[in-house]
Every structure is written in structure tokens, then in C-alpha cells.
């Protein structure tokens, strides 16, 4: 089994990533999460963005998934500018799951990543990583995901209960995700100014 995967840049100049190694990891991750063989994958890595600036975006059109990642998504937090294979595999797999969601997994109607709210993105990330945790074989830092989610959705019992549901959810749709967001927004007692808004992206427009 193999996928048609393209990587930009073809060779890294600002970081010490081996493009061939990253491509192999991407192939492994795509296979692990069941990206169909006839779906091509385009990966664009912004190598100027270092850790801890971890960010990604996923787009889907029939037959093709496109992804943008900050270089920090694959960088070893312990070793400057070096690739961390296990972490990279998880980041890629989670993004691929979101790409699959957009393709035919109930998120076909979701707005582009650049237009969804921080809260919506946080819920979706929990759904993606939760599935990887249930599948097994991935490097998962659940407390990290929980903290990122709480920062966007609130530090409350309501938010935590939704998190636990989404983390274990076998399936979810964009409509259901919007309903969850509605419940979270209703329970978020933080002043309006402190609630997460759609903010500027790390991704160059």
C-alpha cells in the first residue's frame, strides 16, 4: 500500500529535517489511519516556524488532501531544529484524520480551517487525537490535549464532561460539533473579552 504524497519544501534548509524521513513517516501515518490509497496527499511545511509554535491546517477536495504544518509540529522539543519521528507521526495522523473527516467523515460541510473558531478547532483536535488514542500505537500526550482544549473552551466541569465524551466518541459530525460548541459557549462564564475569538493565524495568507 502506498499513497501519492508530495512534500514542500523538497529539501529543508532552515531545519535539519530529512525530507525523505518525513515522507516515510507520513506514508506510515496515512496507512495507519486508513487514508484511501487513491487519495493523494500534499504536505506543506513552513520550516521557519519553530517549536513550540505547533499549528496545522487541513483541506480536502475529492481525491486530494492538502495540509499545512508549522515546522514546530515536527521538531524535537529537546533538540533544536531536529525531527522528532514519533511526535511527527502523531501530528500527521491527527491531521490526516481531520482531512478524512472533511472528505467523507461527516465534516463535508465544515468551513475551511481558517474560518472555524478556536473553540471548534479545539473540539475537533480532541476528537482526532482521541481516535488515535483508542486505535493505539501513537505517541499521545492526553494531558497536553486537555490543557489546550481547556484554554479554548473553559476551565469548567461542563467543558471537562464534553471533553471526556468527545475524546471517546467513535464518531462525530460537524453538526454535532457545532452543538457541543453551543453548550460550551453557554457554560463559559469568562468575561466576553476573555473568551477565545478567531485570531490571526501563524499561516501566511
Amino acid at each position: 500500500m502506498s499513497h501519492a504524497i508530495s512534500l514542500t519544501p523538497e529539501a529543508f534548509t532552515l531545519v535539519k529535517f530529512d525530507a525523505a524521513e518525513l515522507l516515510a513517516i507520513a506514508e506510515d501515518a496515512a496507512t495507519a489511519v486508513g487514508v484511501p490509497d487513491d487519495v493523494s496527499i500534499a504536505i506543506d511545511v513552513d520550516e521557519a516556524l519553530p517549536g513550540p509554535l505547533i499549528a496545522s491546517a487541513a483541506e480536502a477536495v475529492p481525491g486530494k488532501l492538502s495540509f499545512w504544518f508549522s515546522g514546530g509540529s515536527f521538531e524535537d522539543p529537546k533538540r533544536l531544529a531536529m525531527l522528532q519521528p514519533e511526535m511527527s507521526r502523531t501530528e500527521l495522523a491527527a491531521a490526516f484524520l481531520r482531512g478524512r473527516d472533511r472528505l467523507d467523515g461527516g465534516f463535508e460541510d465544515a468551513p475551511p480551517d481558517g474560518e472555524i473558531s478556536e473553540r471548534q478547532r479545539a473540539i475537533w483536535d480532541v476528537y482526532a487525537e482521541g481516535r488515535l488514542a483508542q486505535q493505539g500505537g501513537f505517541l499521545i500526550n492526553e494531558p497536553r490535549r486537555r490543557y489546550s482544549y481547556r484554554l479554548r473552551c473553559g476551565f469548567s466541569d461542563v467543558a471537562d464532561a464534553e471533553y471526556d465524551r468527545v475524546w471517546k466518541a467513535p464518531s462525530l459530525s460537524w453538526t454535532e460539533l457545532e452543538e457541543i460548541e453551543g453548550r460550551l459557549a453557554g457554560a463559559d462564564t469568562r468575561p466576553e473579552a476573555r473568551k477565545p475569538l478567531r485570531h490571526e493565524s501563524l499561516r501566511p495568507s
Binding site: I54, L151, P204
Partner: peptide, 21 residues
């Protein structure tokens, strides 16, 4: 590049990972 304010604030991109770091 213009990445906006560099202040560490919850609303900024990658705020959770920056705070963890």
C-alpha cells in the same frame, strides 16, 4: 514576517504550547 504581537497571551496562536514551553 508580521506574526502580530509576540506577547504570551491566551488568545495568541499556539498559546497552549507556548505556555507549556
Amino acid at each position: 514576517r508580521d506574526l502580530g504581537s509576540a506577547k504570551l497571551q491566551p488568545g495568541r496562536p499556539a498559546a497552549a504550547d507556548r505556555a507549556r514551553n
